[in-house]
Nucleic acid binder design. Structure first.
Lengths: 334, 334
DNA sequence: GGAATGTATGCATAGCTATGCAATGACGAC
DNA sequence: GTCGTCATTGCATAGCTATGCATACATTCC
């Protein structure tokens, strides 16, 4: 009664109540263990009465895999990350793994989060946040557990990456807008361009320039709807605003579309064509029909998982997997 | 080399390398432990070299709190759940707790998920899914750990609930629509009305009838945008369609608005007024301006957390906390 | 009947850290 | 010099389950 508060019952508690040995209890809950039906029933009855659940921790301490995977995300206000987390969790649970979730403000806080997480002996870490600084990469590497990060440019021993082909996406966006007759271009960045985003921009700008067009006007938003609004207002302060805009993500593109239509009375797509990135659900809503790039979350998640579970052959080697984002054209560019 | 694959280094490994006792390593990583600076430095150097992190599992086995809280969600396609998870994770991490995430199809799978989760000795469970069947409540109760479920009608020993005042919200929705001059009403349900949703509907319908109006027409969608579309088409097959609709959540309301405007050429709010539920970010977008009920996620999360951490005084008692959803009127009802 | 095979059960232990306890040494007071 | 006080360090152990090993019993076959 003194410290029994909130105590999980142990296999010995069950054994005592059932009048059997602790081994018998263990065997009852171990598949393919040799035990008679009579004994098993006695154990199950006692277990039910006490609310007993097997304890995974001793096994982990003996050296078995913990079957916990840490997943690090940077906030779910963006439906894209919500979908990544959703898919990842589903896929891991289907394999009998548990997900230890860690939310982190930016990749600078990543290594501190890892310190907490590794106390629980997770088998691996999947980060929806890109690893962008050498410092972080090195610290992750030091923990000597497999880390897979999305959209990272940096890798290190133990630290692998799943990347979209961002430059190719940028070029495709340029080609599409050119084909639709656009002449003056804009790009809306996030607050601090990640390397992945920078590649996207470079691919976009270079292709435009290579085809004899001016470099795109640039503005920054903070990755959400309001940021898209602010950025589009900024672009519209120019003497001659763009007639085609590529946004670093969909939320900003949606903010841009609404502000153009309802605040600046500009028609989309007639006067301005817009492309987003991520292909979140809202892109397909009747009011928007936003052209976007689908990062193919399923393939990326599958890649991340195989990178974790195929470690046997990989050791501490670092691997980079690249997937091609798929352009989904809708009426915002027609 | 044989089974050392992926092995975390132990405090003894560090001790051996540093030429000190295992206790010294432990003390180095324990705050306020008595240890000389010289020894601590030696230990830290060795620890850094091996990538050592303290192991939380033995302590848990000794009876300390695990500082892991399981969070159960039903999928994050709905931004409302994403926000709940986001807030909950933030708040728990701020208290030094870890989040063990479990995704579950429906509350029928809840007890099975609990079986997996409790193997890891979590201190408590927070479920964004409502507990709706006696069966589930009983099974949760049997595990004897604190469970807090959102929007549950059922409770049991150890199983508490954080509820919105759904009936009140329903009545408020009715009052607002009546005040705005609506005369014919509709309600869009989820696929199988949860008890919480049923209360909402009952509050809405009763108030309407009490004020001398006909009962609302009903349709079902599956809680997402497409479901809202299907439901609104169904309602529009009637000879005289409604001029005011209350939806069980925002995603369906948005699908309904878009379908009315772009497919059925009906003006919102001039011809039809619409109210949603949850007050997700999209409600505030310029293209929608959807009137909705804010469930005040912060307060609900705060309530859930205090219900967990104030257990000392509560024991296995079950508690129900009710919060009032706040009506946020926007132009979809003007 | 006796040997061989198989099944069922219990005993004892590894695995890792925090911590109580004891031992050691330093230092100042008398 | 002797003693008390204090800081530092090491030793030994609890906590829980899976599992190898040994034992006991049942079954089968000749």
């Amino acid at each position: 009664m003194t410290k029994s508060r909130n105590r999980y019952p142990t296999s010995s508690d069950v054994a005592r109540l059932a009048g059997v040995s602790q081994s018998a209890v263990s065997r009852t809950f171990t598949r393919d263990a040799s035990i008679s039906t009579a004994l098993r029933e006695k154990v199950l009855t006692a277990a039910r009465e006490l609310g007993y659940r097997p304890n995974a921790l001793p096994g982990i301490m003996q050296g078995q895999r913990s079957r916990m995977i840490a997943v690090v995300v940077g906030g779910m206000y963006n439906p894209f990350y919500a979908r990544v987390l959703d898919t990842l969790t589903d896929e891991l649970q289907a394999r009998g793994e548990q997900v230890l979730l860690s939310r982190v403000e930016s990749d600078h806080a990543l290594d501190e989060a890892i310190d907490q997480i590794t106390r629980y002996r997770v088998d691996a870490v999947v980060s929806a946040l890109a690893v962008t600084t050498e410092e972080t990469a090195r610290k992750l590497s030091a923990s000597r557990i497999p880390v897979v990060a999305f959209n990272s440019t940096l890798t290190a021993p133990w630290v692998s990456a799943i990347n979209s082909d961002n430059a190719a996406a940028g070029r495709q966006a340029a080609d599409l807008l050119l084909a639709r007759g656009a002449r003056r271009f804009g790009f809306i960045h996030g607050p601090l361009s990640s390397p992945a985003e920078q590649e996207r921009f470079d691919g976009f700008a270079r292709r435009l320039v290579a085809c004899g067009n001016p470099a795109p006007a640039e503005a920054r938003g903070d990755y959400d709807y309001g940021g898209g609004q602010a950025a589009i207002r900024e672009l519209w302060r120019a003497a001659i605003p763009p007639d085609a805009i590529f946004c670093a993500n969909d939320l900003m593109a949606l903010g841009a579309i609404d502000t153009l239509r309802h605040e600046l009375s500009v028609s989309v797509p007639r006067s301005v064509r817009i492309i987003g990135y991520d292909n979140i659900d809202s892109c397909d809503w009747l009011g928007y029909q936003l052209t976007s790039f689908d990062q193919d979350v399923n393939t990326m998640v599958e890649g991340a998982i195989s990178l974790i579970f195929d470690r046997e052959g990989l050791g501490e080697k670092s691997v980079t997997v690249t997937v091609s984002p798929k352009l989904v054209e809708r009426s915002s560019t027609r």
